[in-house]
Design a protein around this nucleic acid. Structure first.
Length: 141
DNA sequence: AGTGAGCGA
């Protein structure tokens, strides 16, 4: 009666009574994330370099990468308060071709005793809007 | 501890 009908309706809606014994729901792998966020970013002149020795400095990074092209910019990311390297950095070449050579020449190589990894950097996070008082200096390029 | 993956004043 009414109860039976209600239960049947609930089951039909996919409630507690949902039991699927055999289905060919071979879930189609919908990985839009993998398609939208490939492990390696698309080519750019900007390189992300990780695996650095903690005492590798911006200069050491530039010296190492300048063997494969003209380094327009190099930076080892350091903690602003402790001043120690975070172990990764960025290198920017003047041309895409040099960037490609830099990756081929430096990825997986040693720098200061550590195997480093060089890849194309992702586009940087949107710049924080400058505050009204004491606007934080924008990154200089 | 600079303890080791990562995307930046």
């Amino acid at each position: 009666m009414a109860m039976r009908a209600a239960a049947a309706a609930a089951a039909a809606r996919g409630g507690l009574g949902r039991r699927v014994f055999s289905t060919f729901n071979f879930a189609p792998p919908p990985n839009p994330a993998a398609a939208a966020a490939p492990p390696q970013a698309e080519p750019s002149t900007n390189l992300f370099v990780s695996g650095l020795n903690k005492r590798t400095t911006t200069d050491g990074l530039r010296e190492a990468f300048s063997k494969f092209g003209e380094v327009a910019h190099a930076r080892v990311v350091t903690d602003p308060v402790h001043g120690y390297s975070k172990g990764f950095g960025f290198v920017r070449y003047t041309t895409l071709d040099e960037a490609a050579e830099g990756i081929k020449g430096m990825d997986g190589k040693f720098l200061d005793g550590w195997v480093i990894f060089a890849e194309y950097a992702r586009p940087r996070q949107p710049r924080p809007p400058p505050g009204e008082n004491g606007a934080p200096p924008s990154p200089r390029y």
